[in-house]
């Protein structure tokens, strides 16, 4: 049962990942990417990593993809298509992909995986305590670093959005 579902998700991920990079319509590519990310979250659900799956859905599905779609809506018209990549770029990209894939496959195939015996799903309070603990296995430092990063991004966004008004103050010529 789980095996079947895993293969369904795997096939979905591979097919739509390829479709995503090969689509010439940008919003379609984004939607294919969304399907890939959702399928990945399906994989997490399958192994009972519910919290991670929900995070995957919220952050990637609800956050990142919506923002990408939003920027696409702002700049792209429905009829616009992406340019066809030159052959040279294609070859280089293909070579890089093959290289990356072979390294990954090699790593996966040679690593001695342990079969997990623990089917108990992780409780949320455990995750919460881990996130805010500074002991061993604690994530307080990355948590704070990401907070600072996000804060910087927000400030940057505000500065960019207010660009016009700042320009007036500095006396730049504006239309």
């Amino acid at each position: 049962m789980e095996r079947i579902l895993f293969y369904i998700f795997a096939v979905l991920i591979v097919i739509f990942a390829v479709a995503s990079v090969s689509s010439r319509k940008i919003l379609r590519a984004v939607i294919y990417l969304l399907i890939v990310l959702t399928a990945v979250s399906g994989l997490y659900f399958l192994i009972d990593y519910n919290f991670l799956a929900a995070i995957q859905l919220t952050v990637y599905g609800g956050g990142v993809i919506v923002l990408i779609i939003f920027s696409v809506l702002l700049v792209h018209h429905v009829e616009l298509e992406l340019e066809i990549t030159p052959l040279k770029t294609k070859i280089i990209a293909a070579a890089l992909v093959v290289a990356g894939l072979s390294i990954t496959l090699w790593a996966i195939l040679t690593y001695p995986f342990n079969t997990a015996n623990n089917y108990k799903s992780i409780e949320v309070d455990v995750i919460g305590e881990k996130l805010l603990s500074y002991g061993e296995g604690g994530f307080i430092l990355p948590f704070e670093v990401i907070s600072v990063l996000l804060f910087a991004i927000m400030v940057g966004a505000i500065v960019i959005a207010k660009g016009k008004k700042l320009g007036i103050k500095t006396g730049e010529k504006l239309e």
């Binding site: 960019i160 660009g163 016009k164 320009g167 730049e172 010529k173 504006l174 239309e175």
Partner: peptide, 14 residues
């Protein structure tokens, strides 16, 4: 403010 169809040259990022 322009009579022709010249692209706008707004001194703005967007």
């Amino acid at each position: 403010g322009t009579q022709n169809m010249k692209p706008e040259t707004i001194n703005n990022n967007f």
